[in-house]
Amino acid sequence: MHTELRTISTRRDNVPSPNPEAVGCIERFATFLSFLLVIITFPFSLFECFKVVQEFERAVIFRLGRLRKGGARGPGLFFVLPCIDTYRKVDLRTVSFDVPPQEVLTRDSVTVAVDAVVYYRIKEPLNAVVRVADYSASTRLLAATTLRNVLGMRDLAQLLSDREAISHMMQASLDEATDPWGVEVERVEIKDVRLPVQLQRAMAAEAEADREARAKIIAAEGEIKASKALKEASLVMIDNPMALQLRYLQSLSSISAEKNSTIIFPFPMDFLKTFLEDLGQVHSNKSTCRQCIGGSKSK
C-alpha cells in the first residue's frame, strides 16, 4: 500500500515521460501513415516537417497528445511529423510585468496603495507547458496575492523604511510557489507606496513639529554656549578695562560699515561718576550757604 502511494506521488511531482511500450496499435498506424505522407509529398513536406527555434526559445513537442521523449527541442532545427505532432514554443528570456496597485491594510490599520515590478524567467520548459495552463497569467495573479499577504504583516513604518527586506521576502515566497511550474522569480521591486491625503498631512505636521522642537533645542543650546562665552569675556574685560573700549570701537566700526544714518552711541557710566560727584558737592555747598545766610538774617 505504501509503495503504491509513493509511486503515485512521484508521478504527480515529476513531468510524465512518454512510455514507448504503452503506444497502441492505432497510434502506431497513425505514425506510419504520417511517415508515408511525408514520403509521398517529398520534397514539399520538408517545409512542414522541419522547424527552427531561436537561441532563447525551446520547443515542447507532443505526438498524439503524448509528450515526446527527449525533452524540449532547441535551439536550432528539429523535426516534426505532420498531422500527429504538435509543438509549443517557450521563451526563456527574462520577462517583467507591473503588479497593479493593491489596496493593502497594514498591521497598524492603515490603508495604503502599493504597486511593484516582478522579473521572472522559464527554467523548465516542460513544467511550464505541462503543469500549468498559462504560466504568465498564473504568475501575475500570484504576485498580486503575495504582495497583499506580505504587506499585511507589516506596519506602516516598516513598509516605508524596509522596502528591500519586503522585496526579498516577496521574491522568496513567489519563487517557492512558482517552482513546480518551472518559473524562476529573479527579482521583485516595490515601486511606489501611496498614502491617503489625510495621513500625508498628519505625517507632514508631525515632521514639522519635530523639526521645530529640534530647532528650539539647538537654539537654546546655542544661547547657553553664548552666555558662557560672554561670561568669560566679561572676566577678561574686568582685568583689562581697555578691552571694553576696544570692543566698543569694533562694534561701532561694524555698524558704520552698513551705511546707517542713525548710530546709537553708548556712553559708559564710569565717565559720569566724576561729574555726578562734583554736582553733589556743589548742591551740598549751596545748601550749606543758604542755611548760613538764613541764620544770619534771623539774628
Rank of each mutant, 00 (worst) to 15 (best):
L64E: 08
G24R: 14
E103N: 05
V60T: 10
L279P: 00
L64N: 08
L147Q: 01
R187M: 00
N260E: 13
Q198N: 11
Q102S: 01
F78H: 05
C292F: 08
I224F: 07
L252Q: 12
G70S: 10
G152I: 04
D179L: 14
C289A: 12
I8F: 05
F42W: 15
V130M: 13
Q158I: 01
I238H: 08
R247H: 07
S261L: 06
D155R: 00
E48W: 15
R290D: 06
Q245C: 04
N285V: 07
D134N: 15
A59E: 03
S136T: 14
E221G: 08
S287P: 03
L276N: 03
S138I: 12
S138M: 13
V183A: 02
A205L: 14
N149E: 12
Y119S: 06
P82I: 08
N260K: 14
I217R: 14
T111V: 13
S34Q: 10
R154Y: 00
Q198D: 15
Y135R: 03
L159W: 00
A215T: 13
K297E: 00
D162G: 04
P241F: 02
L147N: 02
V80R: 07
C83L: 15
P125W: 12
L174P: 03
L81A: 10
N149D: 07
M1I: 14
A229S: 09
L244W: 09
L195R: 04
R211I: 14
I255E: 11
L33P: 05
I238W: 12
S287V: 12
R290E: 05
V130L: 06
C289Y: 11
S9F: 11
V99F: 00
E184W: 05
A257M: 05
T7A: 12
R93T: 07
I190R: 01
T41G: 07
Q281C: 10
R11K: 14
D278A: 13
C292P: 01
L37W: 09
R121E: 11
T31D: 09
K123E: 09
R163Y: 00
R121Y: 07
V110M: 00
P180C: 13
I39Q: 10
I190N: 00
D175C: 05
V38E: 03
P18E: 14
A113T: 08
G76A: 06
R247N: 11
E4V: 15
P241E: 11
P180M: 14
I84E: 11
P82F: 04
T146G: 01
T3A: 13
V53I: 06
N149M: 05
Q158Y: 02
V95P: 01
A72W: 03
R68W: 05
T7E: 14
K216N: 06
A209G: 13
L244A: 10
L77A: 05
E164M: 09
V112E: 03
S136C: 09
G294F: 08
R93Q: 09
N285E: 12
I39E: 06
R93D: 05
V185S: 06
G24D: 15
R214E: 14
P16K: 11
P16C: 10
D162C: 03
N240Y: 06
A133I: 04
P196V: 06
R121F: 10
D210E: 15
A177N: 07
V188F: 04
P125K: 09
V132W: 08
A22Y: 08
V193P: 02
R63A: 06
N285L: 13
F275V: 09
Q158F: 01
M170N: 01
F265D: 08
Y135G: 05
R88H: 01
Y135Q: 03
V60Y: 04
R58E: 09
